[in-house]
Design a binder for these strands. Sequence first.
DNA 1: GTGTATTGGTCAACCAACTTGACTACTTTG
DNA 2: CAAAGTAGTCAAGTTGGTTGACCAATACAC
Lengths: 148, 148
Amino acid sequence: MQNSDAMALSAALLAAAGGLTQRIHEGVVARGFEGVRPAHGFAFVRLAPDGATVTDLATHLGMTKQAASQLVDELVRKGYVERRPHPGDARARLVVLTESGWACTRAAEEAAAEAVRAWVDVLGESEVRALRDRLLRVAPGGRIRPAW
Amino acid sequence: MQNSDAMALSAALLAAAGGLTQRIHEGVVARGFEGVRPAHGFAFVRLAPDGATVTDLATHLGMTKQAASQLVDELVRKGYVERRPHPGDARARLVVLTESGWACTRAAEEAAAEAVRAWVDVLGESEVRALRDRLLRVAPGGRIRPAW
DNA sequence: GTGTATTGGTCAACCAACTTGACTACTTTG
DNA sequence: CAAAGTAGTCAAGTTGGTTGACCAATACAC
């Protein structure tokens, strides 16, 4: 495998990732959620099950806890999350999605499904599934964070 | 295909893209090129064949021409590119790679090849090739730009 | 149990990458 | 050749992050 092949793969991967992110973002906006950035989506993913602490979020997003705290401030201001006292640790605060936050998360899922459907049209379902499985093996437990 | 599948695919894709970018960047730094950011790499790709104008670069990178101009300033200061008069249009200036810029580009290619090699170890060469082909079909001529 | 170190979170000041707006120099169009 | 458009830069402002200092609560050592 030559260097040029590696570059072609890299370029395709980055283009695909960029395009996907853009499509999801557009889909979310089209569903009426304004003022959300892609980074918020990654926060939502982490918050979705049971909430998370600011420090958890910071680790997950690959940023400082101060930056994560600012991001949470912004999401609180926009009504997508709220800070609740942490049961069992009075220092910590649990950041959880509001109903609006859940709605936005569902919108993002729909938008992602829509984007992937376009890929299914090109590659067929089994190929897309194979693509997913290979990516999962190559980026196991990969932290989802800004590409740079 | 369910929404959750789409999310898994999206997450894997973004994680892979992020990881790849990081590895390439680390590889470039390890080869002695300091003060380069991933965004510079995307500029290099565009400049590599014959150079490009600032406006070209801006379009390619998805930013304003002012921002592209600042980026070029920085690369000039670091010795990776230089501005030359544009043959045939006295308004424009052709931004071209210096020898150092070419060396950095080659380093990035090596780093990318190295990162992809790690994938070959996991998936095998034919699978990686298949991955590349599928991504190319899904993101044809995709503009390479920050994922978000 | 009490003192020390660690952890979760915030406030404040700063920085870097990018934006918008205003402008000059050259080119194209009619 | 005048009017409109294009390439590029300068300057100022915004934004999303950083580093550093700090407080409150918890965990650990003895």
